[in-house]
Simulated assay, not measured.
Amino acid sequence: MASFDVESLFTNVPLHETTELIVNNLNISHLDKFGLDKVHFRKLLGITAHHSVFCFDDCLYTQTDGVAMGPPLGPSYANAFLCHHEQDWLEQCPLEFKPLHYRRYIDDTFLLFKHPSHVNLFLDYLNSKHPSIKFSCEMQKDNQLPFLDTMVTNNNGIFHTTKERLAWEPRLTIGSMREPTPFHEARLVSGANSFGRHCQWVTGLQVLRSQSLRCSHLDFVRNTGKRTIIERHRATRC
């Protein structure tokens, strides 16, 4: 048994590559339900995923690549990227160290191998496949392996899981794991329901940095009562 973890998956997901993967693999019939085509859907993805703005040290910055932590599209982008590539990686993997069992949830993967020596061979193989993605691994100790919020025990080929007691209750559970599958178009397109909200947020920040900064500032304060970040931006003009 072994578990593989993608190091800093969200911030290493290549945005432009993943956007094209999502758009190219979408069925146009799913977009029709929302009155969209691939051209407009690509523009919406560009607005919501490619213009993540954050404040640090009293300055506003735009994240140029990688998925921002927190927005609802983050897990969908990360999963779409890995779903596409891991299918090819598994199909092309040499049989001599190919895992017997492969189950992933977001950036955590549970694997079974014929022999312990195959673990590092497969790890090196995965780490050679894409420049943006690097995996780390943890191997079983005393026939036990912690994975997500469970402890997996291998008792002569019979597996048992026990829930680990944590100070907090995670939302990710082992029951949600699944095999790599083709894109789930309906789930990706359903994100269109939240696009309007995010477009308004991003557009507001873009206007904030335009020549009409003062008017936008007054409107924003009047509607939200928030002025700290805006005033810092006006003062520093980073």
Rank of each mutant, 00 (worst) to 15 (best):
F4A: 10
D5F: 07
E7F: 10
E7C: 12
S8G: 08
T11N: 04
V13R: 00
H16D: 13
L21F: 11
N25L: 06
I28D: 14
H30F: 12
L31G: 04
D32Q: 14
K33G: 10
F34M: 10
L36D: 02
D37G: 09
D37E: 05
V39Y: 04
H40Q: 12
K43A: 08
K43G: 02
K43V: 03
G46D: 08
I47L: 03
I47F: 00
I47Y: 00
A49K: 03
A49R: 03
H51T: 08
V53Y: 13
C55I: 10
C59S: 07
L60Y: 11
T64E: 12
D65E: 14
V67H: 00
V67M: 11
G70H: 01
P72C: 01
S76Q: 10
F81L: 02
L82A: 01
H84A: 08
E86V: 01
C93R: 07
C93V: 06
L95Q: 11
L95W: 01
P99R: 02
L100D: 07
H101M: 11
Y102E: 04
Y105T: 06
I106Y: 00
D108E: 10
F110Q: 08
F110G: 05
L111E: 11
P116Y: 08
H118V: 09
N120E: 15
L121N: 13
Y125I: 11
N127G: 06
S128L: 09
F135N: 10
C137W: 02
E138W: 07
E138Q: 14
Q144Y: 02
V152G: 07
N155W: 03
N156W: 04
I158Q: 13
H160W: 05
H160Y: 10
H160E: 14
T161P: 06
R165K: 15
R165S: 12
T173N: 09
G175H: 04
R178W: 01
P180C: 07
P182G: 09
E185Y: 11
E185F: 11
N193K: 15
G196L: 06
R197H: 13
C199H: 08
V202R: 07
L205T: 03
L208G: 09
S210R: 02
C215R: 14
C215H: 13
K226T: 03
R227I: 10
I230Y: 04
R237G: 05
